[in-house]
Design a protein around this nucleic acid. Structure first.
Lengths: 230, 230
DNA sequence: GACTATTGAATTGTTGAACAATCCGTCAAT
DNA sequence: ATTGACGGATTGTTCAACAATTCAATAGTC
């Protein structure tokens, strides 16, 4: 009876949903949220004692959480000095955009193999951005823009690409928060996003890729330029 | 006097060379080497007590090392059960090849901006593979092939791409070690590698990219096919 | 015999304390 | 202003303890 039951496989697919998680992971989640929301300025030192006391976890558990975030490049670790909120260099920002361009344009190129629901997610992100723009909710415009690009990367249908993209965007937020008017780097691209989404639904993948590539030309130089003046 | 001395900058560039490293990192290095060299069969459980005793480190330090390797997907962590050497599924192998194809073809496309030394590294990897093939040293043929693809990815001139590629290839080795005759998956591609390298030195980037894409068509289906029969 | 419940040993999860190693600011000396 | 020594504070690492959980073996039930 325990052979290949058709329903059992459906259950097994949801196996990962009930993955229990330890304290270190949860601590890392909390810190990660604070980091990507810009509550901690780059360069800030996170002392084991104070953070541990604030979250009521032991130093050992906290250090495990720190390791995770260091591996995700949100924190940097200096031996015998502690962990600090990462401060991205101009080279880092340029590098992040290089990687983004590679992943996203490749994803669009392989979009013809993606199912319609995946493309619908892209469209939805654009719509949410447009509505947020009408409300003049620039904060939400920014996160909708992030979701748009996450959705673009998802066209590759690869768990690993999704994961890399998640990390990449989290890291990029460190750069955005360091600047004075982050809105300027999301609002102007609403139109391009719409065009790309429409091209995707129309099946014009080559054109979508070209538009995306042009977007990166302007967006990356703009951000790098702005980031250069510390 | 401590202003912008021309030599001081040269020194500062070598700053990263003296990064001291803690015990956890070194433990992770040791375990990583054993993992990618196939000394531990996938599915093997690494008990904190025995590994800690073997390496003479405390449980806490060992757990920090485990976290790093879990983050690199070389180990998997099951709550209250321990860490195990990862066993890749067929989907994992397919996903790894999807990501490789994206990164490597994109890297080749942007190869025109890479300096000649970076391309020379590709050629060198091919030559080392060819010489190892003459010696019938199939082990070395395999690692030379890995170096070739690492060098291809390096054409993107991105620290992050290099890092992702390193992890990706380490993960792939888990799949190779699980198979009976790993040689079959490196040797046949020596010719293609040579062709791609020659096209790169000749500046024929589009053709190089097309050849690489074709390589992935055959290589990925071959490996997935072989991996399906457990 | 097949299935379920219970028990207990073994392992992991987490904490707290301890000590060594190192960093950093301070102050004195030159 | 530079150097050197001192001392407090922080991190690096280990150890011991206990709670939580798994796993295998046992016994019990139909």
């Amino acid at each position: 009876m325990t052979t290949t039951d058709p329903w059992m496989e459906a259950l097994a697919a949801d196996r990962e949903l009930l993955e229990r998680t330890g304290t270190a992971e949860r601590v890392a989640d909390v810190l990660r949220r604070h980091l990507i929301e810009g509550r901690l300025l780059p360069g800030t030192r996170l002392s084991e004692e104070s953070v541990g006391r604030a979250l009521a976890v032991s130093r050992n558990t906290l250090r495990e959480a720190f390791r995770l975030l260091v591996h995700e490049r949100l924190l940097v670790h200096e031996f015998h000095r502690g962990v600090f909120v990462r401060t991205l260099t101009v080279d880092d920002v340029a590098d992040l955009y290089r990687l983004r361009r590679m992943l996203e344009t490749s994803a669009v190129r392989h979009a013809r193999t993606a199912d319609s629901e995946t493309i619908a997610t892209v469209v939805r992100a654009v719509e949410e951005g447009e509505q947020a723009s009408l409300r003049q909710d620039w904060q939400e415009v920014g996160t909708a823009n992030m979701r748009f690009h996450q959705a673009i990367a998802a066209l590759a249908c690869s768990r690993r690409v999704d994961e890399i993209m998640r990390q990449l965007l989290a890291e990029l937020r460190l750069a955005f928060h360091a600047m004075s008017r982050p809105q300027d780097f999301h609002g102007p691209y609403l139109g391009v996003n719409r065009v790309i989404a429409d091209l995707l639904t129309a099946g014009e993948y080559d054109q979508a890729e070209r538009r995306l590539d042009e977007y990166f030309d302007t967006a990356s130089t703009q951000l790098v330029r702005a980031y250069e003046q510390l």
